[in-house]
């Protein structure tokens, strides 16, 4: 029985999925590029402006501010999530009888809807009634100060996203052969040496995958920050997604907004390329 003869059926089975994917993701992706080349106010005909919007983008200080915020947000939160996630994964691997409870607890931030997590932290950060100010002993306007606000948003993202990293790394840890660890112990290697010379190198591919997944996600951050700060104060926490959303749906400028969206697409594309290279490296 050769599976070869059945191949035409394979495309028939995939057709419905590919059709929906084409309609909901691929077609709009092409359409957004077309939109970005046109001047389009709502209820008006389109006007072809070529690369005009991209020239405007190059000189738009607010775009560069949003890009800087997005990159800083992604870099700092992903770095913290990896460090904290690795620590939690190492702890979970030794949880023993408390495993089910510990896994369940760590999964809670993952299960909390992003909008809810923004509301939870907004309340914690509240300048007069927030529990964080109470614990600090002095009221602090966490979300009112440009520098504090961006870091407050990062702390929220670290809380929400570290579980994913921790659980991914935990699965990676379980793939480290026990014999190797035992051999190291027999040879008299200490815990730190074993970790640095065996665990960390064996874990490196999973750490990379987690880093790429999280980076792609952090670069497109929208709801968490939008609900927490609205992009303020004074655009200090405005990310690219928030800026694009505002131009599209608050200023109703679909042409320039779409150009911002294409810029997002380009950044995601670079991240996706990095991931593809990684994946190919892992397959070989």
């Amino acid at each position: 029985m050769s599976a070869r003869r059945l191949r035409p059926d394979a495309w028939a089975l995939m057709a419905p999925a590919l059709l929906v994917l084409a309609a909901v993701t691929a077609l709009p992706t092409g359409y957004v590029v077309w939109l970005s080349l046109n001047e389009r106010a709502l209820f008006r005909a389109e006007d072809f402006v070529g690369l005009g919007h991209y020239l405007r983008l190059a000189g738009d200080a607010r775009f560069w501010n949003a890009l800087g915020n997005t990159l800083y947000f992604a870099a700092v939160s992903v770095a913290l999530e990896l460090a904290l996630g690795l620590a939690i994964a190492l702890l979970l691997a030794r949880a023993g009888r408390a495993r089910a409870f510990a896994y369940g607890a760590v999964l809670v931030p993952w299960a909390v809807p992003t909008v809810v997590s923004a509301r939870i932290w907004e309340w914690i950060y509240n300048p007069e009634l927030g529990v964080l100010g109470y614990l600090a002993g002095t009221p602090v306007n966490w979300l009112g100060d440009p520098v504090l606000a961006l870091h407050a948003a990062i702390a929220m993202d670290v809380w929400k996203s570290t579980p994913f990293v921790a659980l991914l790394l935990l699965a990676g840890l379980q793939g480290v052969p026990r014999d190797l660890l035992r051999a190291a112990a027999v040879d008299g290697a200490g815990a730190w040496t074993t970790f640095r010379r065996i665990t960390l190198p064996m874990l490196a591919p999973v750490i990379l995958v987690a880093a790429v997944f999280r980076t792609i996600d952090a670069l497109r951050v929208f709801d968490a920050v939008y609900v927490l700060t609205g992009g303020g104060p004074a655009n200090a926490t405005e990310t690219l997604s928030i800026y694009a959303y505002r131009v599209l749906f608050q200023m109703l400028d679909f042409g320039y907004g779409s150009a911002l969206a294409v810029a997002m697409l380009a950044i995601a594309g670079i991240a996706a390329l990095a991931y593809a290279r990684l994946l190919r490296g892992g397959m070989e």
Partner: peptide, 8 residues
Amino acid sequence: PPVATVSP
């Protein structure tokens, strides 16, 4: 990124 396809 969802925001890239939200206008179309």
